[in-house]
């Protein structure tokens, strides 16, 4: 499964949510599918999209929040899983694309390439429900179930280490400035 295919598959359901992405290719691919005011692309602070999503979920318990994470990022903030599990907002869904590499900087392998199991780590951290998926139909089913569940869930989607910069973006970055994105996202949240 390619990450872009996975994003295309879940994209329709994201209209009901606010979304926080990590920096890099995930953000660029999501934006290439069509930006929405409820998308926030964290352009710095690698590893902390899940923490920011936690903060949004805690302050807006009425809004479904989706975090789009990556293996390299999550490995930088494993302690964040314990904090998410501790406060476990039921409106938060954590989707991790695990391509076993730091693809945006040359494809250097991460620890998941040698067996580190992020779904297992999430479960051991206390996330109420975590699952590892390999196929697109399973991912969409788990993602739909997570959005419908009144429970914090973590989904680790194993994806190919493949990236073609979308034509509408500049390589691994979005073309939306962080402050502009922030104003837009904040106004969108306030309108919900």
């Amino acid at each position: 499964m390619r990450r872009l295919e996975a994003l295309e598959a879940i994209y329709p359901r994201l209209s009901d949510c606010v979304v926080v992405t990590i920096m890099g290719a995930v953000a660029a691919e999501l934006q290439s599918l069509g930006h929405r005011p409820g998308f926030f692309y964290l352009q710095h602070a690698m590893g902390l999209a899940s923490s920011m999503g936690l903060g949004i979920a805690l302050s807006r318990p009425d809004v479904p929040v989706v975090v789009l994470d990556g293996d390299g990022s999550l490995l930088m903030n494993l302690g964040g899983l314990t904090t998410m599990a501790r406060y476990r907002p039921p409106n938060l869904t954590h989707l991790v694309f695990d391509n076993e590499s730091l693809l945006s900087v040359g494809g250097f392998p991460t620890a998941t390439s040698t067996g580190s199991d992020l779904a297992g780590v999430a479960a051991a951290a206390g996330i109420p429900y975590s699952v590892r998926v390999h196929e697109l139909p399973t991912l969409t089913a788990e993602f739909d179930a997570a959005l419908d569940a009144d429970e914090l869930r973590s989904i680790v989607a194993k994806t190919e280490a493949h990236y073609e910069p979308p034509a509408a973006t500049s390589g691994f970055v979005t073309d939306l400035g962080l402050l502009e994105n922030r104003f837009q996202f904040q106004r969108h949240l306030a309108s919900l």
């Binding site: 949004i56 302050s59 964040g80």
Partner: peptide, 19 residues
């Protein structure tokens, strides 16, 4: 939090959510 850096990201999320 488990590590202090998380606090700034969580706080930023809280703020952008209206807290």
């Amino acid at each position: 939090v488990s590590r202090e850096g998380e606090a700034f990201a969580i706080a930023s999320g809280v703020w952008i959510g209206g807290g």
